[in-house]
Amino acid sequence: MIVTQALDVVLLLLLVMTAVAIARVKDLFATVMLSGIYGLLSASFFVLMDAVDVAFTEASVGAGIFPLLMLAVLSFVGRYEADSKRRVALPVFLLTLVSGAVLLLATTQMPAFGGEDTPAQQHVAVRYIEDSPQEIGIPNMVTSVLASYRGFDTLGEVLVIFTATIGVVVVLLGVVQPGKARSLPADEDMADHKVLRIVGKMLIPLILLFALYVQFHGDYGPGGGFQAGVIFATGIILYAMLFGLSNAQRVLPMPLLRGLTALGVMIYGSVGVAGLLAGGNFLDYSVLASDPVSGQHLGILLIELGVGVTVASSMVLIFYAFSLTTSSDGSVER
């Protein structure tokens, strides 16, 4: 207990220091690296707080995708902030200081940290903890809540990813219906990096395999469709970086990815509609099989598949979009 609390204090203080450093450093490349550290620190904190699924996701997002996208953007917009306006915005500083002080006072009324008799622990959560292993039949309660009790939120989450992907592609490339996408320059930049290529060749199959493991192990341990999708996409992105975008596109062309992104949402939605047709409510998995628990199993398996498909294809598609766009804006007349 003491160790937990000591680690808690250390990690949180490190987070604050990193945040302040991000605010002060002018070199954008350095701040992006710092936010990667920030992501990793918060992921470690989440492990400490028993939130292993969240830690897994935060590590892949906060220390993975986010810095990767940021670096892609820096390659367009340059590394340094404009230097002329080196000033502290005093009114804003005072505003945040005062609001912070008010909040600080108010939070002393929060139920004490770590207590087991707080309202948050007492009411709705009790059923998830005590009954979900029987009702849903899988040990990971986070997966039970995510995929079944609050499965509709997760459908919304997949929809958010779909929306963002359509948005990114149309903003960067001007089309969501490829086919007319511009031809790619043959990139052989990495051809000389033999070591990277060979190590990559060995790693990529393992990464893809690990993605499948995370996809189907989410019922028992941390993991699930989202994390698996991100890992799978990472494998493909690594391939694209080492062997060229055109090679990656031969394996996974844009039209296929676009279709898959939509397909994932459709799979998820169809499981919901199947529940309707089988006489239950929307997203009721219990009616999908002869007994409720195996119905829940089947439903969760299918919707996690939908999540994985949409996430993996979206991430690769977003990566393509950032790689294919030209900063000098040839796609639309403006």
């Binding site: 707080m49 028993d50 939130a51 699924d53 969240v54 996701t57 935060e58 997002v61 906060g62 995708i65 986010f66 996208l69 940021m70 892609a72 953007v73 367009f76 917009v77 948050a120 622990q121 709705v124 959560a125 998830y128 903890i129 309660m141 986070v142 039970s144 809540v145 995510l146 609050r150 939120d153 997760t154 919304g156 989450e157 958010v160 990813i161 929306t163 963002a164 992907t165 948005g167 990114v168 903003v171 960067l172 989202f226 977003i318 979009a321 950032f322 766009t325 900063s327 804006d329």
Partner: peptide, 30 residues
């Protein structure tokens, strides 16, 4: 056990956050 519900909510919020960031960065490039 620690409470699984906030974990689920934050899983969703992380995904929403990165989706927003991706769109924002695309806008920055343009």
């Amino acid at each position: 056990y620690s409470n699984p519900l906030p974990h689920v909510l934050i899983l969703t919020a992380i995904v929403v956050g990165i989706a927003t960031m991706a769109l924002a960065l695309a806008l920055v490039v343009r």
